[in-house]
Amino acid sequence: MRIALFVTCLNDAFFPRVGIATVTVLERLGHTVTFPAGQSCCGQLHANTGYPDPARVLERSTEAAFAGHDVVVSPSGSCVAHLRAHTRLPVHELSELLVDVLAVTDVGARFPHRVTYHPTCHGLRMLRLGDRPRRLLGAVRDLELLDLPEPEQCCGFGGTFALKNAAVSGAMLDDKCAHAVATGADYLAAADSSCLAHIGGGLARRPGAPRPVHYAEILAATGPGTGP
């Protein structure tokens, strides 16, 4: 299958490894990935911060960049939710593509670590990803999946909320980090690099805390002792 990747602006600039992992998984499964170069941002940041006009410009430019593509995938729950609400692009979050469209849960990965999974809000409540990411992680060889306490609680990122309401965001982050630490996991996985940047930035200040990882990176891992 030919699959167009919407990598997201954040991954492009800060977390290219998430895009690379997505490409790696899909190519390993025998699919052809394309990267329309006209893409940048879906407009979510602008829309949610209160700027509908620039948001519309970016929604339209994203739509134009992916015109003619039948299947679009993105490793970001919140960007997919935004594009689905504001464009007509046939866009799938990575776990939706794998489980629903490609009908695979075992992507041939091996990740010999203890992992806990945080279902990010957009994936949980807007996309209703359900247990898809956990099913994918559950099929990864040598991965031990640990339950995160109060998983459905928001991590406190919320885009510019993290700056505008820094104190509340920090308090929510403290609780999320404490839950993550309590699992004893090596890695905390999630489906959104934005939330992971926030949670990971908090975990980095806690000795012995799990390291943040996008679940696509886990799905891309294979060899012995691999880590992202």
Partner: peptide, 22 residues
């Protein structure tokens, strides 16, 4: 950005962007 780093570390732009890797 100090509002961000008051509570958490900030990521830095990657050494190679995704599109350059691609």
């Amino acid at each position: 950005l100090s509002a961000w780093t008051a509570h958490r570390d900030a990521p830095l732009p990657a050494a190679e962007s995704f599109r350059d890797w691609w």
